[in-house]
């Protein structure tokens, strides 16, 4: 009975949240920040631009073979990129420019956490920086 009440209230809260959320619309490029290690090792965080890559490749080229479709779930290291994995599958000097152009990828503002930026995805469980709240990932 109490459980039922709670579920019902959750819907009200959800709808209120939804109203808030729809008024927060803004432009988005679906950039993903990758910063598990980069900054602690002295490089700027990595910014991956979805808008730029989806003009050239469909999603299935990268997902799920190269990158799992969950921000923060791919443990990318620079050594593997140079080895031809992850970004290095293309950024190898053949399909796209080689990894020696460090700053093109390492272009983020210092202090950014890994995850989606400039997007309206309210975030969810499974993201590395999700504090557990449904609206935690918005930045």
């Amino acid at each position: 009975m109490i459980f039922k009440e709670m579920i019902a209230w959750r819907r009200t809260v959800l709808l209120f949240a939804l109203m808030l959320f729809v008024t927060l619309a803004q432009a988005e490029y679906a950039d993903v920040v990758l910063n598990r290690r980069a900054e602690t090792e002295g490089m700027r965080p990595v910014v991956f631009p979805h808008w730029f890559h989806r003009l050239r490749f469909t999603c299935n080229v990268c997902h799920p073979d190269i990158f799992k479709m969950r921000a923060g779930s791919n443990d990318v290291t620079m050594a593997e990129i140079i080895d031809g994995k992850f970004c290095g599958k293309c950024h190898n000097g053949e399909i796209a420019w080689s990894p020696e152009h460090c700053h093109r990828c390492h272009s983020g503002l210092p202090g950014l956490r890994s995850g989606f930026k400039n997007s309206q995805n309210p975030g969810g469980p499974g993201t590395i920086n999700s504090p557990g709240s449904a609206f935690g990932r918005r930045e």
Binding site: D31, V47, S107, G108, L109, P110, K117, N118
Partner: peptide, 8 residues
């Protein structure tokens, strides 16, 4: 955009 470093 508050993602890219403008001084980079």
């Amino acid at each position: 955009d508050k993602v890219h470093d403008p001084s980079g």
